[in-house]
């Protein structure tokens, strides 16, 4: 039933399946900021003349996203992700560049465009603080012209999937952060948008709430082929949800590939976790790059090249009293850290 509605929605928007849903080329956006030194005198001086400078927040971003993808969009604070998302949402106008999303230019076709767009700002609530979330849902029904039967069906669907059937009737101010976030998700998805931007959807949530929200995103993506763009600082969000990831740093795209590629970014480097049967002094491991060391365990990083992993293993087995050993790739978190600092 939902899939039928979704298909008709796509038809109305003139979108064909398997198209690129987002195409961005050469996106630039700068802001003028004013510098103020410390103290009252500096505030007074500001009345006669302020030192302003232009900051390039987005510096030539190119991006392509396929329909039905869950794309991670990550980067350090101030990298330009939020500005990019705001341009993609039609909130900000870029200085330069081409943005085509669902066949529209967000800031030019804004009203028509946002009918097919859902946005969740993890730190900006759409809910009315003093009223139950269901009142905000009803307002959204009116805003997006959702029929009453359809609305009831959607509310029942979300209620069951997110386990909020009772919660949505309690005043928002009495809800926990996780419960509020689930209700925010409903606001973003109620009108069955083809594209959804989730800005830190799991920020501050406990493990169980995080998992519920991730499962919900995956389910919606599978059931309705909804495209998600997820910005997050939580690596487990990326690992659990995303097919592909785009890393933005200093306003440009520095990585744009699959999660698998990100995981094997350092193909020639491996982490070996070793447990020893008896104490091995640290100086006996000086031939290796030791990442962490305790009396009976050590984590070492090896560079493949002259020696392959088999040679490293036999060398370790020959030289040390091994109880257990585990080989893994460099952690995604460390890869991301490396890319951020590059």
């Amino acid at each position: 039933m939902l899939e039928t509605v979704f298909a008709s929605l796509y038809k109305r928007g003139g979108i064909r399946l398997n198209d690129s849903i987002i195409t961005i080329e050469g996106l630039h956006k700068s802001f003028k900021i004013y510098k103020k030194d410390e103290g009252l005198l500096s505030s007074l001086r500001g009345y006669w003349g302020r030192k302003g400078k232009s900051i390039l927040a987005v510096d030539g971003i190119d991006l392509k996203v396929q329909k039905g993808e869950i794309r991670g969009l990550i980067g350090p604070n101030g990298a330009g992700k939020s500005t990019t998302i705001k341009i993609m949402s039609g909130i900000l106008h870029p200085d330069e560049g081409k943005v085509e999303i669902m066949g529209m230019t967000p800031w030019k076709d804004r009203k028509r465009y946002v009918k097919n767009l859902g946005v969740l700002f993890g730190q900006k609530s759409q809910l009315n603080w003093d009223l139950p979330a269901v009142d905000t849902f009803a307002l959204h029904r009116e805003m997006y012209g959702i029929g009453m039967a359809k609305y009831r069906e959607r509310i029942a669907y979300f209620g069951e999937l997110l386990n909020i059937s009772e919660i949505m009737y309690k005043p928002v101010r009495l809800l926990s952060l996780g419960e509020r976030m689930k209700c925010e998700l409903v606001c973003a998805l109620l009108h069955e948008p083809a594209l959804i931007f989730l800005d830190e959807p799991t920020i501050g949530l406990d493990i169980i709430s995080k998992q519920t929200i991730r499962n919900f995103i995956k389910r919606t993506n599978q059931d309705m082929r909804t495209t998600f763009i997820v910005t997050t600082h939580d690596v487990s969000d990326l690992e659990d949800l995303c097919d592909k990831v785009t890393i933005i740093n200093k306003g440009t795209v520095v990585f744009d590939d699959t999660m698998q590629s990100l995981g094997s970014y350092f193909r020639d480097r491996k982490i070996i976790d070793v447990s020893f049967r008896e104490l091995v002094p640290l100086d006996r491991l000086e031939d290796y790059k030791v990442l962490s060391y305790q009396a009976l365990t050590a984590k070492i990083e090896v560079q493949l090249g002259e020696k392959d992993i088999k040679q490293y293993m036999s060398e370790i087995f020959d030289c040390y009293p091994i109880k257990d050993i585990n080989i893994s790739n460099i952690r995604i978190e460390d890869v991301i850290k490396h890319i951020y600092s590059a």
Partner: peptide, 14 residues
């Protein structure tokens, strides 16, 4: 001031 004006810009109205 708070940037919540963004929320109005993602609604299908002027």
């Amino acid at each position: 001031r708070s940037g919540d004006f963004d929320k109005l810009l993602i609604k299908p109205y002027s």
